[in-house]
Computed example of a mutant assay.
Amino acid sequence: MTFRIRSAGMSDPGLKRPANEDSMLIDDDHSLWVVADGMGGHKNGAFASSQAVGCLAELTFEEDFDAALQRTADCIYAANQQIWNAEGGSEARGTMGTTIVSLLIRGQRFAILWVGDSRAYIYRRGGLFRLSTDHTHVQDLVDQGMLEPSEAEHHPMAHVLSRALGVQETVQVDIVEDTLEPGDIFLLCSDGLTGPVSEGTIREIVSANPPGEAVDKLIEAAHANGAPDNVSVALVAVESDS
């Protein structure tokens, strides 16, 4: 079985931030989509996220899934080192960084690679399922059984990252892999979407609209709920081409 891909994306500054620190890549030709949410103030955050996305944008890929996945992961590790080195002296290091979440598709296989709390979801068979796990201190407590998931959502430290690109000399990139099904819709987004907009609302919008319209409606939903942060959204719809 072969697939046809339709994608759309948008990055919006939101309603409270003076500038946008997020960066995105929508690369249908190479079947790679990326969202990165910079941190450390506008100049530093924008630099960090653009470094991460720029590294991936310059890749040339093999058709082989495993080789393409390895190159993508290697590039994310390299971006971490580039951001770390760019910060200069030891006192400045750790003051800027970025999350990253990416989707790679080859043939009938896909992979999600991520660091931080920008998320990946899949809409499949009527349900919206999260593919990534937030790299935050609060999520770590949930994973350790020290905090209930219901307590984590509105925890005052919910957005304090335990992992991000550029804040330490080494980083671990998490990866999940699976096979595609016709009708799959992938969502990559910064926490500027998932903070103000519920997963139920996200599911309703994604299920009822083609990618371009859904992206617009998701941004509108964030605005309707105050949009306190930059909002970046990428949607990738998979359709049967056979």
Rank of each mutant, 00 (worst) to 15 (best):
D174F: 12
H155N: 13
S132Y: 02
V138Q: 07
R17T: 02
Q139M: 04
S162H: 12
D134P: 00
E153A: 11
I5Y: 07
D241W: 15
A86Q: 08
Y123C: 04
R106A: 02
E63L: 11
S118V: 01
V171G: 13
A120N: 02
R17H: 07
E58M: 09
L128E: 00
I219V: 13
D28A: 14
A68G: 11
R109A: 00
R109F: 03
G38P: 03
S118P: 03
P196H: 02
V53C: 03
P182L: 04
Y121W: 05
E148I: 09
G145D: 07
A227Y: 09
D66K: 13
I100P: 05
N20L: 07
R124Q: 10
L59S: 00
S7I: 08
M39K: 15
D37W: 06
A224P: 04
D64W: 06
H223K: 14
L113T: 01
D28E: 12
E181G: 10
L32C: 01
I100K: 05
R71S: 11
I100L: 11
T170A: 15
D74I: 04
S150W: 15
I122Y: 09
A224C: 07
G200N: 06
S198C: 02
A111L: 02
W33G: 05
L113V: 01
R4C: 14
H159D: 04
D37P: 12
E239L: 15
F129R: 09
P211M: 10
R125M: 03
V238F: 15
I105S: 02
M39D: 12
T95E: 08
I205Q: 04
T194K: 01
G88S: 01
I185T: 11
A221E: 03
A48M: 12
R17V: 04
E58F: 03
R17F: 07
T133Y: 05
A86K: 05
Q172T: 14
V197K: 02
F65P: 01
Q144P: 05
N80M: 08
A8C: 09
G126N: 01
D74H: 11
V236S: 10
F61T: 03
Q82R: 07
L32K: 05
G127M: 05
V115L: 07
A67C: 13
S242G: 15
A152R: 08
L147D: 06
S23I: 07
P149Y: 00
R109D: 02
V233N: 11
Q51K: 11
S207I: 08
G40N: 12
S240L: 10
V142W: 00
R163P: 14
A222T: 02
P149C: 01
I202L: 03
P18F: 05
D74W: 10
H42P: 10
Q51S: 11
W33Q: 01
R130K: 01
W114Q: 06
D184F: 14
D22W: 10
L165W: 12
P13N: 10
D229L: 11
R163C: 06
G41M: 06
S190V: 11
P210M: 13
L128K: 04
G40F: 10
H135W: 06
V206D: 09
V233T: 09
G14L: 09
D12H: 14
S49A: 10
A36R: 06
F65K: 08
S50Y: 05
D12G: 12
